[in-house]
Computed example of a mutant assay.
Amino acid sequence: MSDTDQITPDDQTRHAQKMAKKKAARDRMMQTKTGEKGLVIVHTGSGKGKSSSGFGMIMRCIAHGMPCAVVQFIKGAWDTGERRLLTTHFADLCSFHAMGEGFTWETQDKSRDIAAAQAGWDRAKELIRDPQIRMVLLDEVNIALRYGYLDAAELVAFLTDEKPPMTHVVLTGRGAPEAVIGMADLVTEMTMIRHPFKAGIKAQAGVEF
């Protein structure tokens, strides 16, 4: 016998009444949420999914016909699936700028890393200033901030003073500075519970890149 076979008419009535109360409360709450603004969104933490979430929002923008842009600060040298997809199929709506040269332990050249990060930030500022672009994803920018390749105070000041009112800016990467977290409208911290890398599984296409 399935669980549905055990539902009595009284059970159904109580459930309907309970859900009606929840819907009424939800409708009242939603009536107060009428504002719109361009959001500063931060995805940080040690868990997987920060960039993936950012690219998910980029795909939503594309689906709505909203012009958007991506600036990659660290993984620019990688041939990633998202880069292939966006540059091959959606270049008319999403401009993709791979500015990084790899993780800092790969380049082993701090001055080069700083120059690449600054070039990425200069490009990001141009894109953010363009009011036609509705979302700009700054992929792994938090890592550049954490290593001191970019100045967090400058970034916060720019987003506060120069970002157009309806432009969304998404910042990904672990170790987001407190100043960035403090000024953001939406902050999500990804928590790692288990990761296959610790079990000897390498990064795999379609999962990590």
Rank of each mutant, 00 (worst) to 15 (best):
A25W: 00
F103R: 09
V187I: 08
P9V: 04
P131H: 06
A117Q: 05
G175R: 05
E101N: 15
D5Q: 12
L93Q: 01
A153R: 10
T188Q: 06
R194Y: 13
L171D: 10
V156Q: 08
M57D: 13
E178A: 12
I114N: 08
R60M: 02
E126N: 13
H195M: 04
M57S: 14
M135E: 04
G38T: 02
N142T: 02
C61L: 00
E162A: 15
I133L: 07
T172C: 11
L138D: 11
D11C: 06
H97E: 07
V71L: 03
P177S: 08
A152Y: 04
D10V: 14
V40G: 06
G38I: 03
T8Q: 08
K21Y: 04
D151N: 09
A152W: 03
F103V: 05
K48C: 06
D151A: 10
G100H: 05
I193P: 07
F55R: 05
V40H: 06
I62H: 01
A157T: 14
H89I: 00
K75L: 01
V169D: 04
S51F: 05
R134I: 01
K50T: 02
S53N: 07
D5R: 15
W78L: 13
K18F: 08
T87H: 01
F73W: 13
A179C: 11
P9G: 07
I181N: 15
T34S: 11
K33I: 12
A199W: 03
T32K: 11
A124W: 04
M190Y: 07
G120A: 07
D151W: 05
G173H: 11
R60G: 03
A117R: 05
I193T: 13
Q108V: 14
S95T: 14
A176C: 06
F73N: 09
L85G: 02
T32V: 13
E178L: 10
R28I: 03
D27T: 09
T80C: 10
F197Y: 15
G200T: 03
T44W: 01
M1L: 13
G173S: 08
P196K: 08
L39V: 04
A199P: 01
I7V: 12
A98R: 07
K23I: 00
A116S: 14
F73L: 09
D92R: 00
M66N: 09
H43T: 05
D113M: 03
M30F: 14
A115F: 03
T8P: 05
M192F: 08
D5G: 09
M59E: 11
H43S: 09
